[in-house]
Design a protein around this nucleic acid. Structure first.
Lengths: 217, 217
DNA sequence: GTTTTGAATTTTGTATACAATATGTAATTC
DNA sequence: GAATTACATATTGTATACAAAATTCAAAAC
């Protein structure tokens, strides 16, 4: 950890380990060696242990008291299901948004949506975040808290926006906006649930691409 | 931490701090002093820091990089909302249970329910857990994972079964069982959502009783 | 040949030590 | 007198040290 970091090393280590797992670099069931990370990143085990605790809470690691941390054995079903749950909560929020968002907020949403359509590469992820974040302003504090957790937990909101998925996402956003504009709460819920289900499939496919799931050694 | 503990001190510290917060002993906004806990429990700061990370993830503490951990300012609305979300997920599981539980499992559920009715004091919490756990067998692995988190997070599943709440819980369970027996998925969902909403109100009231929310100093 | 047992080694968990930042207090300035 | 600055203190974050448990591997027993 070369840069003159002054605090919050654990967060960087979390990002590092999560990245390696999601990249398919560390396989499910594999042991996470604290000393190995310590050497790789040139840090002590203190912040590493805190990072492993966080990843354990997120569900990416199984942490057993005296045995250590292991990469969780996540199945395709887990990922699909995770997004389904994400959709359950997001759907409720979308329904609220259809009722509570002001007209000007809806205009802003549409603007973000149009920029998404025109955008390229990296920007898609950023604009996607903006899109969902604006909708989520309709949710309670606690709901937003839960969404944040679901988002960073497991393989959510990480995968690259591949050409195919970008197109699909655009269609999904389109339907969501339409329903919200119509003030159709139930339609917004359904559209959001379907959108996130599709996102789950896309995420699972992306993980398959990366050689996630199991070790073919 | 007198007993000859061999590993997993952090979990005990989590329980200790969470207990103190939920008991209204540590007030929202108050700083959590690592040294103070270290002295009180006679442990080093290493496991304490891991405990604070966990409690931060749970939402009971606000942890800021170089400033320390503070008791989160949880409002009554947060608690109500938390249970609402809990109900959203549990409701979906109840709907699944109405479709998927075998007849013998439903009989078992009814048995637990009858024991709950007859039970006294401490047993209510245990039987309540059994009741919900059996229903949750109908859920996917990931859903159970989320429920576990929602359950231990914030003030959920902690409060004492006061006479009034026990009665209310019994009524709620009754309706849930009826709907499941009728194989009425949507009815089970509604019954579960209502049950957990009532639980949220009960929890919020219990916290009020304990002098939670704010410091009247 | 397989299983069991028992040290040697590795790795985790906790404690302590040290460095850097934040906090609190008092003196100084306007 | 209020605000600001400089210094002293306290507290956090990270590194290192040490103790205990788990894993490994080889020798011995069956």
């Amino acid at each position: 950890m070369s840069a003159g970091r002054r605090g919050g090393l654990a967060d960087e280590i979390v990002a590092y380990v999560r990245g390696r797992i999601l990249a398919g670099d560390m396989k499910p069931g594999e042991k996470v060696d604290q000393d190995a990370i310590a050497e790789a990143l040139d840090v002590s085990r203190s912040p590493i242990r805190e990072a492993l605790v966080i990843l354990g809470q997120e569900g990416l690691l199984d942490v057993t008291p005296r045995r250590g941390a292991f990469v969780a054995s996540i199945t395709r079903e887990d990922v699909i299901d995770h997004y389904e749950l994400f959709g359950l909560v997001s759907g409720r929020v979308a329904a609220l948004a259809a009722e509570r968002l002001s007209d000007s907020e809806i205009s802003e949403l549409r603007l973000i949506h149009e920029r998404f359509e025109a955008a390229t590469g990296e920007d898609h992820s950023k604009l996607n975040n903006e899109f969902h974040r604006l909708i989520n302003t309709a949710a309670s504090r606690r709901t937003r808290w839960l969404l944040r957790h679901l988002e960073r937990s497991i393989p959510a909101g990480f995968y690259a926006f591949t050409p195919g998925w970008t197109e699909q996402a655009h269609t999904g956003h389109d339907e969501i906006i339409d329903a919200i504009t119509r003030r159709d709460a139930d339609g917004a819920r359904r559209a959001m649930e379907e959108h996130l289900h599709a996102a789950g499939v896309a995420a699972a496919d992306a993980l398959t691409e990366r050689g996630f799931w199991q070790d073919a050694s």
